[in-house]
Each structure stands twice: as C-alpha cells, then as structure tokens.
C-alpha cells in the first residue's frame, strides 16, 4: 500500500478543522473572535475549509476598541463579506462614554475595551463557545492552556482546574452560563502561520508588509501615527520610516519594526533571522511578571 506522509502543515490544518467541527456540534451558540490580525485570518480561512461547501455556521465577532489601525477596519469588513458570514462589532459602551483611550488610561484601556468588552459581547449574545486565535508558542501561560478552555459563568479561567484533554476527544459540555474558549491554532507556531498564509494566499492587513509610514519612538517602542488622534508629546515629530508590524493590536500599543520586507518570503526571512519574540512589540505583556496569566484569569482572551 502506498503511504502518504502528511506534512506538518497538513496535520495542523486537519487538527484545526476537526476542532471547529467538534465545536459546532457540541455548542449551542458558537462565535468566532476575529481580531483582523494574521492569526484571525488563518483561523477564518480554516473555518471556510472546515464547513465547505457550506459557509461557516457561526458569526464573526470583533471586540472593537475603536483604536485599531484604519487598514484593519477596511480588511475586517471585506473578509467577513467574502466569507459570507455575519460580522458583529461590539464596543464597550462604558468605555465609549468615558472616552477610554490608550494615551491617557494605560492598562485600563485594555481592561475596559478588550477584557470587559469581550465579556459583555459574549453575555449580550449568549455565546457559549468562542473561537480564539491564540497559540501556545506565544507566551508561557498559553503553553499550558487546553484547546477547549473552560470558563466559569464570570468568564474566569482556572489554570489549576483544567479538564484533562485526551486524544482528539474534546469535552465541550457545560452548565448554563458557563462557556468555552476554543483555540484551534494552539499547536501552530508563528512560522507555521506565516508559511500557511504564503501557501494558501490568504489576504492579510497591508501593515504586515513594509512601507514608508509616519512614526515616533516612545518608551523603546516604534509607534506609527495612524491618524490625528495620536497625541504628540512636546518636541515629538513624526518621522517617515520603512516599517512593518509583526503583530497588530491597538495602534498606539503596538510597536513596529524597521523593515524592508515587502513580500511574504521576505517577512518570513526577516522573522527567522530576527532575535526578538513576537509579543515583544506589545506593551500589554510588560506590565508585570506573569501578567498574561493574570489577565487570562480575569477573562482576557
């Protein structure tokens, strides 16, 4: 008998598809968290594959902070339209009212827009399972999280009380009010994501590719001035630099890197030769030791 050796990407793809199919059959009301980043792009692409020829049987949810890059909003609407999926956008009304922004409010910005916003959106629609694009190679506490990650009715993650998860047999049963976060990309690495985008021709936000953009440097981070809401400090003057982003969050919180990589192979080349890890560009992780674990316990995705 002829044997076909599946490549690691084929196996990761099959695993993600299997996970998504388990969720739609076990959950009452699933949703896919869509952050418009490269991981979200891959996750959405896999969802299309999992249910083809049917469209993915759940909506996309963007927990919006109103502080995303303009390019991200443009791609968000386009990607949802092309997938034939409903796009739900949630902005925390309390944060809207109080004008919470990353310049004046620091950690509160993430807490209110993202952590609280996400909980509100899930409760508002009654979603009992939410796909997220997190990967285990991103951060230490994620390395230990299950693929089907159980959350209490108050959205808390209890790292010491995780359900055993054997083979590809996933237990998504839960009581009313409780929910699951599901991470189909758990076993993908940053390189896998990039290579898959390359192989499958997946459209991503142009900001991942290098271009001349207005920037300032602040606290060791290279920040892009995306619109006039960016409050410049005394003496700060935007400088045009060839930059790109390895990870995309809220624009003032996400640091860029100087780069000339304009194609995916060049991006991958740069990534492989680089010497800093992906989350380095995100201010959120530097708050305190074990900060992600703490945020996750509180309900951050």
């Amino acid at each position: 008998m002829h044997v076909t050796n599946l490549t690691h990407l084929q196996r990761l793809e099959a695993e993600a598809i299997h996970i998504m199919r388990e969720v739609v059959t076990q959950a009452d009301k699933p949703v896919m968290l869509y952050s418009v980043g490269k991981d979200s792009a891959v996750m959405l692409h896999l969802a299309k594959k999992a249910f083809y020829p049917a469209p993915p049987p759940f909506p996309l949810l963007h927990v919006d902070t109103t502080w995303k890059f303009r390019d991200m909003y443009a791609l968000r609407d386009k990607a949802a339209r092309k997938a034939g999926m409903q796009l739900l956008v949630h902005q925390n009304p309390d944060a809207v009212r109080q004008g919470i922004n990353p310049f004046d409010h620091g950690g509160l910005h993430t807490d209110m827009w993202k952590t609280e916003g996400l909980k509100q959106a899930l409760d508002l629609h009654g979603f009992d399972a939410a796909f997220g694009g997190a990967r285990r190679d991103e951060e230490k506490s994620r390395a230990k999280e299950r693929i089907f990650s159980f959350r209490t009715a108050s959205h808390r993650w209890d790292p010491k009380n995780q359900r055993p998860e054997l083979w590809r047999t996933y237990n998504a049963r839960k009581n009313k009010g409780e929910s699951m976060r599901v991470f189909p990309l758990s076993n993908w690495t940053e390189l896998d994501i990039w290579q898959y985008i390359h192989l499958e021709n997946i459209e991503i936000v142009p900001l991942y590719y290098a271009d001349e953009r207005p920037t300032v440097t602040r606290d060791g981070l290279l920040l892009m001035v995306d619109d006039d809401r960016f409050a410049l400090a005394d003496g700060e003057e935007p400088v045009m630099r060839s930059i790109r982003f390895r990870t995309l969050g809220c624009y003032p919180l996400t640091g860029a890197v100087e780069s000339t990589a304009k194609t995916l192979p060049e991006i991958i080349q740069e990534m492989l030769l680089t010497t800093t890890s992906e989350r380095q560009g995100r201010a959120i992780d530097h708050d305190q030791a074990a900060s992600m674990e703490k945020k996750k316990q509180e309900g951050y995705f």
Binding site: H8, R136, K144, N187, L191, D192, A290
Partner: peptide, 25 residues
C-alpha cells in the same frame, strides 16, 4: 510556565513546546 509553578519549582500541568529541525517539526 505558570507563576505558581515557578514559585514551587515544579511543573504542574502539561505544557506544549515547539521546535523544528531540518526534517521535522
């Protein structure tokens, strides 16, 4: 990984790690 584990100096839960050589991931 987890903060509590670091304090106790033991590995409590399964942690998944990734690396690749020329032939395999």
């Amino acid at each position: 990984g987890l903060a509590a584990e670091r304090e106790q100096g033991i590995t409590i839960d399964v942690a998944y790690r990734f690396f690749a050589t020329e032939k395999r991931k």
